[in-house]
Amino acid sequence: MTSTNLAYFSNDAIYACLVIFTIAFFSHTYEVSWAMKNVATNDKTEFDFSKTQRAGRIGTAMMTLGFIVLAVAVITRGFSAHRVPWGNMYEFSITGALMLTAAYLFAFAKYKVRWLGLPVSISVLLTLGTAITVLYRPSAPLVPALKSPWLAIHVLAAIISGGVFLVANLVAATFLIMERYELKGGRPAWAQRIPSLDSLDQLSYRLIAFVFPLWTFAIIAGAIWAESAWGKYWGWDPKETWAFITWVAYAAYLHARVTVGWRGRRAAWLCIFAGSTFLFNYIYVNIWGTGLHTYSGL
């Protein structure tokens, strides 16, 4: 295939992903809403989950399929431009969506958190939708400043961290919603199968403890690259500044948990705050910010 064909193929795969993740989203929604209906008609405290089991499985199958097709889309995009597919914000976005799905599948395999599929599929759909409509750019070679092995290392580490941060945020948000229900007298039927508050709390901590070193590494790799590209390993460029702020926020989260003993609601809010600094960096600084990083293009 020629480069142009490959690029088109990649775009088609992204459209296919939009369909697949939409199915995943509806499957997960069905799983949830059926349980709700169940309680309305039967008014029981025990639920028959076997009816929604299949919808849930379809959801998981679609998430897996979506992951594979998205991976193909990202890889062919890279081949079409003869480089790693991280040259502009469109490419960061589709790779970010891929990493978010990967983080979900990892968390699902390890902790059986199928319910997370609902918020994850919405987030992936939103990311891919904005990517292909607003951020799309034709496939092209890299600008000289991006031509470096550090691009792959730094950006991959940052995108993986971002995916996991977002999943941790979704978990923390779920914690807050479930806690609210429980304080008001109990969870609704659809939320019965979401893990206990304690496990949600632990899960978001584990995810963050797992990627914090990787995020630290992403920043350091960025600094090493900046040293070879710009002559300065740290220049308080807006992107760097916000990466640092995110790092500080997560460091504060880990300290608050480990040394001060924060748990539950306060920890969840701190987690969400830290995750928001990451999103802010990605959205605001890339689009409206000025600085050396913006050459990566929208």
């Binding site: 308080w236 807006p238 500044t241 916000w242 640092f244 702020i245 500080v248 926020a249 600084v285 910010g289």
Partner: peptide, 9 residues
């Protein structure tokens, strides 16, 4: 330190 870094960006 994190908060103080914000205005510079």
């Amino acid at each position: 330190l994190g908060v103080a870094a914000i205005p510079g960006s």
